[in-house]
Simulated assay, not measured.
Amino acid sequence: MSKRVTIFEPPPLDNSKAAIENVLDLTPISDIGPDVFTNTRPLWHPPGARGIYGGAVIAQCLSAAQRTVPDNFFVHSMHCYFVLAGDSEIPIVYHVERVRTGRSFATRTVQARQRGRPIFTTTLSFNAANSGGKKRLEHDSKMPDTPPPKNISNPPEAKSPFESQRLDDSPYLTSDEVNIEDRKFRQWIRIRGKISEQGGHQAHLSAFAYMSDSYFIGTVARLHKIPRFSSPTALLRALKALKNPSDVDSEALSRYFEELAEEEAAEIRASSLNGTLTTNKLSSIIKRKDNREIGMMVSLDHTIYFHNPQALKADDWLLASIDSPWAGEGRGLVTQKVWNRDGVHVATCVQEGVVRLMQDEDPAPEAKL
């Protein structure tokens, strides 16, 4: 019997929605329970990754939980743990538990499961709009003085579900005069197209959750000026794989990850003399003089604080400032502050992940993940 990548046959794409809304669409499984959902469409497994793109599971868990709270409740925090690598060739089932619903706050937990085992778990807290009263304590982080990209056209037919524009020089060229913990990586991000009226503000929040996992734990390696690919062979293999994307992927996601890998390759090419991608050429770039190479880099947890969810519009430019205050013990911590174009601090994200270097000898069995 052949494996199905979704439980139900996916419907045609809804052209009235943004591409990301189609990517994150959920289907209720009423035969199992009232708060059980599954991915409507196949999810992407990036070449070289241990599993499906984490942002998709984060976003779909949020979408599932949002379906179980009153319309005037908006998420203000979600705390996530990646448990097992997700398999793109079998469906995901999302189980929502209604832990508590009060007058001002509601709590939900969501487990994403495959083969009956949890691959991802999250606890979310929702806050009723305007429940803080008229008198409030307020302060905010100031947005860096950085104007949005001048090219503000956002055609819905563009080839990736979201786009980004980096503001800093290539991380491989970052000045050594700046301490690693003080370096910042900044980019403008937004989804392509326009969120539909049907999707409403909940779709904006889910779309942002999807984007929040892009360029996150990889910041640790960037700030140390170590490419994410552990060897020239690994990079060439990933680029070759991207030329033949999986037929279970949506066209938009496939093209997005093509751009992602090409951007990484372009950074490396920029450090070479003639831009030719060969194993010998990459050896001198990827394998540094200190012989530091990334052996493993995977996310362990992911937290999002939605400070002002109603001011967060995922289809308009958002400025993300990303840094890493700490790395050690084979792990790294990364924080991300996000403002809208009006300077409102709309969210803060935190992620910890495994960041291990290639060792001279294989680690002991108990040291492996």
Results as ranks from 00 to 15, higher is better:
L205I: 15
T101P: 02
A270H: 03
K281H: 05
N340H: 13
I29V: 14
V354E: 00
G275M: 03
L357R: 08
V23N: 02
K142F: 05
R186S: 15
G218Q: 13
S272V: 04
D301S: 11
L24H: 11
R222N: 15
D168I: 06
A106C: 04
S299A: 10
L239A: 11
V69I: 14
A320D: 01
D71V: 07
P148Q: 12
R108N: 02
W188S: 05
E262R: 14
L137D: 12
L318S: 12
D182K: 13
Q111C: 00
K287H: 03
H76K: 01
D176L: 09
M297F: 05
A314R: 10
G275I: 04
T6W: 08
L282I: 10
Q198H: 12
L333F: 13
Y210F: 15
P363D: 10
G86H: 09
Y305T: 06
T279P: 05
R192L: 07
F257C: 15
K135T: 14
Q202R: 13
Y172I: 09
D176F: 04
H95G: 03
V355M: 08
I304G: 09
V350S: 10
I152T: 14
K142R: 07
D31N: 05
D315W: 09
P70Q: 04
N274E: 09
D71P: 10
T109M: 00
F105Y: 10
N274A: 03
S231E: 13
P161N: 06
R103G: 12
P11S: 10
V57G: 00
I191R: 06
N151F: 03
S160C: 13
Q198V: 14
Q114C: 02
R103M: 03
L223R: 07
R228C: 11
G353V: 02
H302T: 01
F105W: 03
L282F: 08
P34R: 06
S324Y: 07
P232A: 01
R113Q: 13
V248D: 13
E352F: 04
V220P: 04
N280F: 04
A221H: 12
E157P: 02
G328D: 09
V23H: 00
R103T: 09
R255M: 11
T233W: 02
I20H: 01
R113G: 01
A270D: 15
I90G: 07
R222L: 10
A238R: 06
H345F: 08
D14L: 07
M78E: 08
S125R: 00
N340K: 08
L312C: 08
S230K: 04
T27V: 12
I294M: 14
H204Y: 07
L235R: 05
C61T: 12
G199D: 13
K3S: 11
I32K: 06
H76G: 11
I285W: 05
A65K: 01
A128R: 12
S16D: 14
Y256S: 04
L300R: 02
P155G: 00
S246L: 09
T122M: 05
V5T: 14
L319T: 03
K142Y: 08
L137M: 13
T278N: 10
K17A: 09
R192I: 10
S299N: 05
R237D: 14
P42N: 12
E197P: 07
